[in-house]
């Protein structure tokens, strides 16, 4: 068979599956973001209101603007944090030897844990009366003894990010360990012979070699951070105040507690648009010659 046909044939099943599933719901959601669809008044979308929903979001709804800021804070913190955490783990555990391979066994577990279980558990762990995290932290850092971990904006956001990092960091590290171990040992050897310290060889040899994997990990994590919902829902409920109310959580609130599906869709599409822009910029920066495809 000729490549000319083969290349499309190979791609076809995946493209068909994805488009067949996504086109309808996505199109539907896209259309209702331009419509008035309040479930409390009607079972089906009613009037075409053009940009009203988007106008309301940007010019008439401080809560939405707040959620935009919260989302950006969270994404920056958790994507950066998780990749850094992953890199740290990878550097520690990317060695040969039985002990290391047993230690690595642990890395899939946090990722495999259902966010529902993790979110609920972490909330208990942070309880100032019978939470294990609270107890341990109070013992290690007595000056933090009276902190109500989810009761102030700063700490609530910090724990949201830490929770997400705990889930993702180890998984990302698995990707990075693969990358680290595939750096030819003679390259490192050569650097050592040249008298480079571990520190300089990390910057000059390891990091550049690792860059493609790091980039993928970072983009992947950014997308998931933008979409993160479970931990806000389970840990903080967007609070205190609206200090951890991300866009996904706000869209959920508007759709499922305020019954306003039109507005919820509009918020979701703003988020999607934001993601398209951010990813496009990433792709440009990371793969300047368009080699990412």
């Amino acid at each position: 068979m000729r490549d000319r046909h083969l290349k499309y044939l190979l791609m076809m099943p995946a493209l068909l599956l994805v488009t067949a599933t996504v086109i309808y719901p996505l199109g539907y959601a896209g259309i209702i973001s331009f419509m008035d669809w309040r479930l409390s008044r009607s079972r089906v979308p009613t009037d075409f209101v053009f940009l009203d929903n988007f106008w309301r979001a940007f010019f008439d709804d401080p809560s939405f603007l707040n959620s935009l800021g919260v989302t950006i804070t969270f994404v920056a913190g958790s994507a950066g944090g998780a990749v850094l955490f992953g890199l740290l783990i990878a550097l520690l555990l990317a060695r040969r030897g039985r002990g290391y391979s047993i230690a690595r066994t642990v890395l899939v577990l946090p990722f495999a844990m259902s966010p529902a279980l993790q979110g609920t558990s972490f909330r208990f762990f942070l309880n100032p009366e019978f939470g294990i995290f609270d107890a341990v932290l109070d013992t290690l850092f007595p000056f933090l003894a009276h902190v109500d971990w989810l009761g102030s904006s700063g700490w609530a956001m910090t724990w949201l990010i830490l929770t997400d990092m705990w889930h993702w960091g180890p998984f990302l590290s698995l990707m990075l360990i693969g990358g680290l171990l595939s750096i030819p040992s003679d390259t490192l050897e050569a650097a050592r012979v040249d008298g480079a310290s571990a520190w300089t060889s990390f910057w000059t040899v390891v990091l550049p070699q690792l860059m493609p994997v790091l980039a993928i990990a970072f983009v992947l994590k950014t997308i998931f951070s933008f979409k993160m919902f479970d931990y806000v829902y389970l840990l903080t409920g967007g609070g205190p105040g609206e200090s951890t109310s991300t866009m996904t959580y706000y869209a959920f609130r508007m759709g499922f507690t305020a019954y306003d599906m039109g507005y919820a869709s509009a918020i979701a599409f703003v988020l999607a648009l934001l993601l398209v822009v951010v990813s496009a910029v990433y792709f440009r920066l990371l793969f300047p010659r368009g080699e990412a495809g």
Partner: peptide, 16 residues
């Protein structure tokens, strides 16, 4: 929806 707005305002007053 109004209730959620209120809940946030109250939480804001006590925590922030």
């Amino acid at each position: 929806e109004v209730m959620q707005v209120l809940a946030n305002a109250i939480s804001d007053a006590v925590s922030n």
